[in-house]
Structures are given as C-alpha cells and as structure tokens.
Computed example of a mutant assay.
Amino acid sequence: MWADLGDTYDGPHATPQRVTSGPYFLNISSLNDGRLDLAQSDHVSSEEFAKWTRRVTPQADDLLFSYETRLGEAALMPDGVKACLGRRMALLRPNRDIVHPRFMLYYYLSPAFQRKIKQNTIYGATVNRISLSTIGKWPVSLPSQKDQRAIAEVLGALDDQIEANTNISRIANQLAGHLFDQAASSVPRIPMSEVLKPVLGGTPVRANIDFWNGADLWASAKDITGAPFAVVVDTEEKITQQAIEQTKAKPLPAGSVVMTARGTVGAVARLAVPSSFNQSCYGFAPVAIPPGLLYFSVLRAAQHAKSLAHGSVFDTITMRTFDHLQIPNFGDSGAATEAQITPLLDLVSANILENKLLAKTRDALLPQLMSGRLRVKEAESLVETVM
C-alpha cells in the first residue's frame, strides 16, 4: 500500500504573504513535466517560513505532488533548496528500504498510477481532488530494489540530458539577449510599422473536418505563451494543406516571430519550423530584418510596452499599436550582431527539438519498464540511440 512507501504530509491550507526573495513557497505551478520549476515559485520571509514548516520541511528526494486541481503532477525535491509546501501540495518522504526515490517519481508519473489517480478523483464544484486520508490504502506493486535502481538510471539518463540541454539553452538565450541589447543601445530607434509588416493570423472553420487534424502546424496563443524558451517547435492542433490554401491561416517560415494580441497580450515566440497561427496573434516574417534581430526587436518592444502600462489595461494590440512600438534601426551594423546571436539561438532551437525526442523516448519507455514488458538492458540500448 501507499502507506508502506513512507510518510505523507500536506501543506498549509492557506496562503502566506509573498515577498520578492527568501525561502521558496512551492505551489502546483512549480510542478512541470516531472520537475520542480522554481521560476514558478513564490518566496516567503524567514518568519513565514518557520510558520509554514511546523508540520514538515521539504527535504531532498521527497516526492512532491498535487492533490487538488492539477492532479497527477509530481517532482522530486532537489538538494540544497530551502522551501515550504504551498496550498494543494503534499509530499511523500520515501522509505528508502522499500522504494528508490527517483523510481517513485517515475512510478507516480506512469500511466498505470495516473489511471489510479483518475479512478480515485473526487470531482467537486470548484476543484477536483484526491483524498490524502485514503491515499495510504491505495495498492502499490513495486519491483525489487535492484530493478528500481536500474529503471531509475535508464529513465534518469534521459531526464538528466533534458536538464543539461535546458540549462545550456537558458545560458545561450540570455547571452544572445545580452549581445542584442548591447548592440541596440548605440543605434537609433524607429517605429515597427516603418520596417515590419504585421500579418494577422486566422482560424479555419472548425465545422469543416477537411481543415483540421492535418500535418501542418497551427499555433494558438496558448502555444505561443507555453513555448519552451519562446521557441515554437510543435503545436497542440494541426491543420491541413486545404485549410492553408482556402483560409487566412497562412504559414510563416521558420525564423518568423509571433506576438499575441489578445488575452495574454504581448507574449512573443519565434518559429523554429513553419507554422500558421490564429487571429489572436500577429506574425512578422524575417524579410527586412534577419531572424535573430527580428526576434529580440519584437520581444523588447513588447516588454517595453508592458512596462509602460504600469498596471493599467493593456488588453489588446491592433495595427495602430505598431506605429508606437519602436525597435532598433541597426542598418549595416546589424549583420555583425546577427552573426553573433544566430548560433546561440540555433543552439536553443536544436536543444528544444532534442529534448522533445528525449521526452518522447522516456514517455514511451516508462510504461514498458514499469510493467516489465521491456527489460532494462533492452531499454539501455534504445536510450543509446537517441543520446
């Protein structure tokens, strides 16, 4: 049973006052694809931290998981992080004599256990939840400690490479932005509308089944805001070539930049592959400005516009907006800056594509290893082909 795996604790049933620095206050938004994303976590003061850790202080290798709203999310607590549990968060402190912590994470994320979560979900009027008072009675079937370690090592190798790629991409992206800002600081600025031609996206008629579930990418605002490192490599929905030919959903080439104009306004992403997009977005093709300079020019213009709002309503972007948003006019000096930032942005795109393949491999191996249908040695050979 779950109770045999270790001790389960939940977080406070309230929210403390947040501050800009200090110990982390973990929340369910911090759980992302089996990892703890501290960038999505808030902070609390030392005094608040002492108050919110009276029940439990998260420690390395605790299994963090959500028991309300975003059910099924989990991550391991990293070493050296000072944090307290947030609302709707719980943790399992694994008994290492019974379960390997990293195996426990993969076991939790496996399709079989995810089905168990769904079977035990309590559907409420406001939020869905699982009961921490009954989770201890859930049946759990584990392989030997030796097999647990072996499975954790195979799947962990893929996740470690994803993490390494992510860290490299973060550094490369920051360096590219720094190089752009440094070059842009010494050149004049001009309205975006003088150099760029915004393209408004379109949505094919959903009632026409010939337009949907094709092979061509079609980005919604959600795809733009959720793109890793603001790079679109795939979209949740796809359209057909017929939709492209007969509707306003025309694709822009790789290297183009897309900005959300409604909803979450001012989110910017670049296209690593050709893609169409909906009418909540404007696109900019790399015609007058090369891809790297185009991306950072549009990104910085959007960031500047949002900073000027100062909390006031900034809820839409129209064609007229681009008369007022300014970008650097690099002229002949732009080629040198583009040559500096292009390899860095290409590295980010390549890492994101590789991470997609690694995650797909991990997700395919996970249920096979957990069920015993695939031997660890066989899985190791498959992993070697993608790393």
Rank of each mutant, 00 (worst) to 15 (best):
V268G: 02
I352R: 05
S66I: 02
Q326A: 03
Y24T: 07
S21W: 06
K306A: 12
I244E: 02
P101R: 03
P274V: 00
L369M: 08
G6R: 00
A75C: 08
L252Q: 04
P291T: 10
V231M: 12
T166Y: 12
N173W: 11
E236P: 08
G283N: 06
V195Q: 15
V287L: 14
A230L: 07
I151N: 02
I168W: 09
F65A: 03
V257R: 02
L179M: 12
P94V: 02
I168C: 07
D147V: 13
D216K: 12
D79Y: 10
P111K: 07
I317H: 01
R300Y: 07
R35I: 00
V273F: 01
P367H: 06
S30K: 01
Y282A: 01
A83Q: 02
L64M: 04
Q340F: 01
D10H: 12
T134Y: 02
L36S: 05
K137C: 12
R88T: 11
R54V: 11
L105P: 00
N128I: 00
T318R: 15
F314H: 10
S30T: 14
V348R: 08
T316S: 15
M387K: 15
S141L: 11
Q340W: 04
Q114S: 09
A83T: 03
V231K: 08
V376W: 11
F284L: 07
I209W: 00
A112Q: 15
D216R: 13
H43A: 10
A309S: 15
T318Y: 12
M387P: 05
T225D: 11
Q279I: 05
Q148W: 06
L175Q: 07
T260E: 05
S220Y: 08
T361A: 10
G22C: 07
A230S: 15
D10Q: 12
G34F: 04
P12M: 04
Q174G: 13
V376Y: 11
V273A: 08
R129H: 09
D159Q: 11
K248H: 14
V298T: 07
T235W: 03
G11I: 05
L158D: 06
A261E: 00
D37A: 13
A288V: 11
A83C: 09
N329T: 01
V313H: 01
Q40M: 11
S131D: 15
G72S: 00
K116S: 09
L31I: 07
A261M: 14
S46Y: 11
A230F: 06
T385R: 14
D223M: 03
L358I: 08
P188T: 10
D216P: 00
I224L: 07
G283T: 01
D4R: 07
P23E: 05
L31C: 05
A172Y: 01
K116R: 10
K360Q: 12
R115L: 04
L369A: 09
F296P: 02
L36I: 06
H13S: 13
S133Y: 04
H13M: 14
G34V: 02
I98K: 13
L71D: 02
R270N: 08
L299G: 04
S46K: 13
N120W: 05
I190C: 05
G263N: 04
T385F: 07
A125C: 12
R189T: 13
K356T: 13
T121K: 07
N95D: 15
K306F: 08
A75P: 03
T20F: 10
D97H: 12
S133G: 13
R375S: 13
R300I: 03
P58M: 01
T361G: 01
F211D: 01
R88H: 12
G214A: 09
L5Q: 00
M89S: 04
